[in-house]
């Protein structure tokens, strides 16, 4: 009985060290081909710039931030990181299908909190992460992972402070998870 329930509660994930070696090799190949590492938050930034440019073109042009990413010859969505992030979605879907994890829409949350609490926390977390990623010049993939691997001091700084502050804040929000 016990083994059956155990099998059900532990999904088939690959060995994390094996996953890490694969990710490291992929990052190395990405450096070799493109000269830059992996990224993720950049695609959302392109989506923001593109949306604002469509809705309020004058405002976007006048802004010192949006205008950095607006070019006259192509849309902000025609960007390396946008295509890469579409790939991330497809790759996640492929793995999910292969390991049987693609299911109906659902909210994953600790039994101690409601779906609503989880959704509010996820939204707030996204806002803070998005805001922070702009100040940080990238997120956990672009700055922390790719930056550190390419010996950037800023990358190392983001890695240490991001995870370090996560441990500090973890105590206060433990009810969300355990």
């Amino acid at each position: 009985m016990d083994t059956v329930s155990k099998e059900k509660s532990i999904p088939k994930y690959i060995n994390p060290y094996f996953g890490g070696v694969l990710l490291g090799l992929l990052l190395l190949v990405t450096f070799y081909i493109t000269g830059r590492g992996l990224g993720a938050s950049g695609a959302v930034k392109s989506a923001v710039v593109s949306t604002v440019e469509k809705i309020a073109p004058v405002h976007a042009e006048e802004s010192t931030y949006y205008s950095k990413f607006i070019s006259t010859d192509h849309s902000p969505m025609f960007n390396w990181l946008v295509f890469e992030s579409i790939g991330v979605f497809i790759g996640g879907l492929l793995s999910g299908v292969l390991f049987g994890r693609v299911k109906k829409l659902r909210v994953e949350h600790s039994p101690k909190i409601t779906s609503k609490t989880r959704i509010i926390a996820a939204g707030l977390g996204g806002i803070l992460f998005g805001f922070g990623s702009q100040l940080g010049r990238g997120c956990s993939s672009g700055a922390a992972l790719s930056g550190t691997a390419a010996f950037s001091f800023g990358g190392l700084l983001v890695m240490v402070v991001l995870f370090g502050s996560g441990y500090v804040f973890a105590y206060f929000f433990r009810k969300l998870w355990i």
Binding site: A121, A122, G123, L124, G125, G126, I127, L128, F129, G130, F131, G132, S133, L135, G136, C139, S140, V158, V161, L162, F163, G164, S165, G166, V168, F169, A170, F173, L176
Partner: peptide
């Protein structure tokens, strides 16, 4: 901010 967003989100 990202660390806080990570724990919340």
């Amino acid at each position: 901010l990202m660390g806080l967003g990570f724990i919340l989100g």
